[in-house]
Design a protein around this nucleic acid. Structure first.
Length: 109
DNA sequence: ACTTTGACTATAA
DNA sequence: GTTATAGCCAAAG
């Protein structure tokens, strides 16, 4: 029986991120009602690639818009490439106009 | 049940 | 840029 695990909840929110938007670990955690558990979001993403369907983890960045999770992809360039493919602009490992493309699951969802 | 870990966040040096 | 410290909290060992 599938009960909503913390991880599953994270995946669900991440999969709801619109294309062209990004969000932060802390925002997801807060949307789950577990504000302060931003680390858990990242921890969940660590296993995200083992979950179906594919979780767009590249749309999840830290609160500064930095691609801190890029090292966990197949190659460190994968995350940036995926983001660029969705219309984002990455400069110095940071999303250009991050606040402008930030998607708040707590407000939008 | 206890300890370690970690894709966070904040501040400091 | 790095490293340290501290707070934070759930999963994994």
């Amino acid at each position: 029986m599938q009960r909503i695990d913390f991880f599953n909840a994270v995946y669900d929110v991440v999969r709801c991120i619109p294309i062209g938007k990004v969000t932060t670990y802390g925002a997801i955690a807060k949307a789950l009602g577990a504000a302060g558990s931003a680390r858990m979001v990242g921890y969940a993403m660590n296993a995200a690639h083992t979950v179906i369907p594919r979780v767009p983890a590249h749309r999840v960045v830290n609160r500064k818009g930095l691609l801190t999770g890029r090292h966990h992809f197949k190659t460190p360039d994968t995350m940036q490439k995926l983001l660029e493919a969705e219309g984002h602009i990455i400069t110095n490992h940071q999303i250009y106009h991050f606040e402008n493309v930030f998607w708040n699951p707590y407000t939008e969802l």
